[in-house]
Design a binder for these strands. Structure first.
Lengths: 253, 253
DNA sequence: AAGTGGTCTAGACCACCGG
DNA sequence: CGGTGGTCTAGACCACTTC
């Protein structure tokens, strides 16, 4: 009756595997290096490929690995800090905000956004598509929903769609007096279109940042930005969104 | 338009399954209701259980479902909005901040935190454990790292550990002049201890909020808060506590 | 004890990328 | 073309909750 309960709660194989791999990544691999393929790794650890994949999945989720079909599994660089919020309120598109407008269409927003905008069911709004690139990598895709009432003077002479139209909508937005804004962050999975733009597979984990812009006592625009969860760390610095620089002197408010 | 090439690019079964289930959740199920078990569901859709599970996994990630071993799969309520950042800077533990201190130990922080604190390698710091409950549910677990130098007057007469000690550390922190703070949010997977506290399995997806508190020209404390990613939507409202009203109601017409 | 979700296996085939 | 990761199957057993 050996009551040697040394492991009364045995941890799952994939969990232990993840730990082992994680330590190996720290000590024996460098950023960008490619790992042995999954079949070899599974054999080396004496587990089924599915089990090995469960461990890799977690490591990828934590931003330690990057897997690409047809290529292989590589050691990922540390997550990049992406400045998302600053204390001061600004309209999207103001004084280069790291986003690039790529397109603009007119469409009915999803139900959740329509609720914020207080538009009628099925009412169409300007939908600006923007993308964000940092360190040479696409990190986020955004859809900005702007009701026609927020940009009343939008000229019809501009193109009805496309990047030029997008810039026109953003320009008109600046004319409004931005009173307030608020943000929410939650976990989501990439829709097919966003996944393609972010060079990920559909369903990849993403951080969804929803921003509401208030003007004239109502919600004048809503932005839904989708960030790659594996490669991004969203920073909400009050100090203007500067990167991790230990610079205690600057800007003590 | 005509991008309806359904046949040329067949979507994965689990993806289609997820869509079907998602629609079924909207129309045929109400919050809290339990779904048929996985074996039945898989049979009903004519797929292997593993495939069905892949779809359920995504839905759980998106906060639509909640799965509990030994119990079943239930329809999850909408995510709760959890206020994380306010514009004004405050020390943790100030004027009820929704957190409850449960314990305090002295230990060496993880390497990443030690880097922020600029402490020597292996140097021990006060480690306060706190938990956050909203709507009757535990939503977050936090570890707050406070170097001894930040609380010089901490009395030795207080208990060396435990909740009382934790409150003492927080109280001493208030005496410092908080100059600045910044936050970062990233995706992570729950460590075993946090998972247990959050009533999740180890490795469950979590949103990790790292906050640095600056005082006296240096980093006086670092907080690492772990939020359940499936049930939480982190809000960073500057506005006076206007809660986002998620409206799941929608009538198809 | 019965029933649930969680883990694990040993295969198979597919979609994609590179040379 | 060969090799990679992505999908899928049909089982098996385990851990947990509930009755």
């Amino acid at each position: 009756m050996g009551t040697t309960q040394l492991e009364s709660v045995p941890e799952p194989k994939y969990w232990h595997l993840k730990t082992v791999l994680s330590e190996a990544l720290d000590s024996e691999f460098s950023v960008g290096e490619i790992l042995p393929n999954e079949r070899d790794l599974a054999a080396r650890f004496g587990v089924a490929r599915a089990t090995l994949r469960q461990a890799l999945e977690q490591l990828e989720l934590e931003g330690r690995l990057q897997r690409r079909r047809g290529v292989g599994t590589t050691v990922a660089p540390p997550r990049v800090g992406v400045a998302v919020g600053s204390a001061q309120h600004t309209w999207p598109g103001a004084a280069d905000d790291a986003w690039q407008a790529t397109d603009c269409t007119v469409a009915a927003p999803p139900a959740s956004v329509a609720g914020f905008l207080e538009t009628a069911h099925g009412e169409q709004v300007h939908t600006v598509r923007r993308s964000r690139v940092t360190h040479g990598q696409q990190v986020a895709a955004e859809l900005l929903y702007v009701p026609a009432s927020s940009v009343p003077d939008l000229s019809a002479i501009d193109a009805p769609s496309g990047a030029a139209r997008a810039r026109a909508v953003l320009r008109e937005l600046q004319r409004l007096d931005l009173e307030n804004q608020d943000r929410a962050v939650e976990l989501g999975s990439a829709r097919a279109d966003d996944a393609k733009e972010l060079d990920r597979l559909p369903g990849a984990p993403v951080l969804v940042v929803t921003t509401r812009f208030f003007a004239e006592g109502r919600t004048a625009a809503v932005s839904v930005a989708t960030y790659r969860a594996d490669t991004c760390r969203l920073t909400f610095g009050d100090s203007g969104g500067v990167e991790i620089h230990h610079d205690p002197e600057r800007r003590a408010s």
